[in-house]
Design a binder for these strands. Structure first.
Lengths: 333, 333
DNA sequence: CTGTTAGCGCTTTCAC
DNA sequence: GTGAAAGCGCTAACAG
């Protein structure tokens, strides 16, 4: 373990004062070229690395932003996180990741942690929009951007995808194919995305004569939940002629239940998912799905966040809503 | 934006000295219960949040650890990250995530960033094991644990899964089913995991008469790469009777190519994947795969790391190698 | 058990 | 264009 090398040692080696080293680091244009070169050389030779906590302490804010998601293992958030990380890394920031696990208690604990770390901004898909820690963060001047929560509030930025439109797209597609007896397989109650997609589905049905929407709630928004919902759906008196699922994992499960029971997809039953994950196209019957610009969601959210961080005065809050897109594959014929 | 509330304001409100507040925060047992209660109340009333950078500056190390992976969107790393995050969060640390994208340049940049942030430890799947920034980090006393890189070095901890054993398991399984003409679909050259799995596959073949292993390298370790490899494999004079793929995404692609061409799985061709991702069981023909304890990998790696951070003297480096496990489903009969 | 105090390493006026 | 010095908020060592 070598002795700590700080700005002081660099200064000594380059025969300048610490202040000048700091200037080289932060406002290089104010330093004469030869001096600057000497300092840079010294930095290099000594392997100096700026102490972030000291800068942060002095500056009052760090070069780190937080990202809090509901589930880091979910492909949706993973893809968004890629967008976030790309921007963060391009712009020389650090990313503090945390995972609320859809648990308000864990969320509050993590928010506390992020506050202690003095993150400069936060991208968050909150479990509890009104968590006092979240408000407190904003009160202390931390920029907050909402991710995948359509922002009701005009006083902050948000990026989201229009889930109502997605649900509508989905069901319109099924109706166009002549399906009339449609099942909607959602996740457990209380998930906003599921609710919005259902709402969209209902609206699409409004004009359609003789069409109906039946609902099945899965226990979890994963393959197993879909399998189970698929079985319940098959147990009914009449099997629907189309199934719209709140995400692709559910759809894969439903499809498996159907195929196993001898139903033909899409001839007997059309299956439609949501998210268009990588595996959708690879299913036995390639899965039609509703695609969201997930990576872009992460990217744009982060750009808005950094803009707000770096330019708090000139910043205008915006609530961005992306439109989803239908990807038709074999599972809906 | 309310005025900053620091330890000083808390002290004043509780009518104690700043030192006592610090003691309440860090060594509560040294403070008399009534005093402690007063201080706690003041903290609460004022909404005081400890300034992490100041502590870090003073202490010389932060309560943050870094995690650098090759690809945050890959389910393997995602699952490991869940294990990491769970431990980090339980123990009250913060997690700085970075993504090297398998790019040595980006890796070095990110390592620099983490060094500046003064992370206390780092979990990393390095692109370049010998990156000077990595060595520098260790020289400054940052604990480093290697993730999914079987550690040759006895001077650091590592957690990994035995990929040679996994490859062997896979091919032994296929041989046991009477398959003799086996194809190995790997990713692009130079990926250690692929090389190790191939090596294991070869060893399994050593004792088997009349069995052979043909290799197909995909361009990317994703579904598309598998589709493409599957087509090349079908174009050959003789279609193999089994395909072992270096991961599940490849296997799903290969399976799709096979089914589309009218081959029956597993009757004509058995297909075997690697990783046992959630979607494996949900494929049209449920995919047999080699399962790795990915979540545990992340958990244990982090526990080792924190142990080393918190107890540098009593810490004994260990190189942990987990054993993979075969999960037989329909795709191999 | 509690208070006092001296920095941690850096940035940033303000002189020169 | 460069140097000197104060202090960001906290902790730990020491004194009382």
């Amino acid at each position: 373990m070598r002795p700590t090398v700080g700005i002081r040692e660099v200064a000594e080696r380059a025969s300048v004062s610490p202040g000048t080293v700091s200037n080289v680091l932060n406002r290089p244009e104010r330093v004469a070229a030869p001096t600057r070169a000497r300092v840079l050389a010294a930095i290099d030779e000594l392997g100096f690395v700026r102490n972030g906590s000291a800068s942060t302490l002095r500056a009052g804010h760090s070069r780190a932003v937080g990202l809090m998601v509901l589930d880091i293992a979910n492909p949706f958030f993973t893809e968004a996180a890629r967008g976030v990380e790309d921007v963060i890394s391009e712009r020389g920031y650090a990313l503090m990741l945390s995972n609320s696990d859809e648990d308000a208690v864990k969320e509050r604990r993590n928010l506390r942690m992020l506050a202690e770390q003095r993150v400069q901004g936060l991208l968050v898909t909150p479990v509890d929009d009104e968590a006092p820690e979240l408000l407190a963060l904003r009160e202390r001047g931390v920029s907050v951007v909402l991710l995948d929560r359509p922002g009701a509030r005009p006083d902050q930025c948000s990026v989201a995808v229009d889930d109502v439109a997605g649900g509508r797209l989905a069901v319109e597609h099924l109706l166009r194919l002549g399906r009339r007896d449609i099942a909607y397989v959602s996740g457990p109650p209380g998930i906003r995305q599921c609710d919005d997609r259902r709402e969209g589905a209902r609206r699409a049905l409004d004009g359609a004569d003789g069409a109906r929407l039946r609902e099945f709630a899965a226990e979890g928004m994963n393959v197993r939940g879909g399998l189970d919902a698929g079985q319940r759906l098959l147990a009914g008196r009449r099997t629907p002629d189309a199934v719209f699922c709140a995400n692709d994992l559910l759809a894969l499960g439903v499809m498996r239940a159907l195929l196993r029971a001898g139903a033909r997809v899409p001839d007997d039953v059309a299956v439609l998912g949501y998210d268009d994950i990588e595996f959708a196209a690879a299913a036995a019957v390639p899965l039609s799905s509703v695609r969201q610009p997930t990576y872009q969601l992460g990217r744009l959210g982060t750009e808005l966040l950094l803009d707000e961080c770096e330019n708090p005065d000139g910043h205008a809050h915006q609530q961005v809503v992306f439109q989803p897109e239908l990807v038709a594959r074999d599972s809906t014929g």
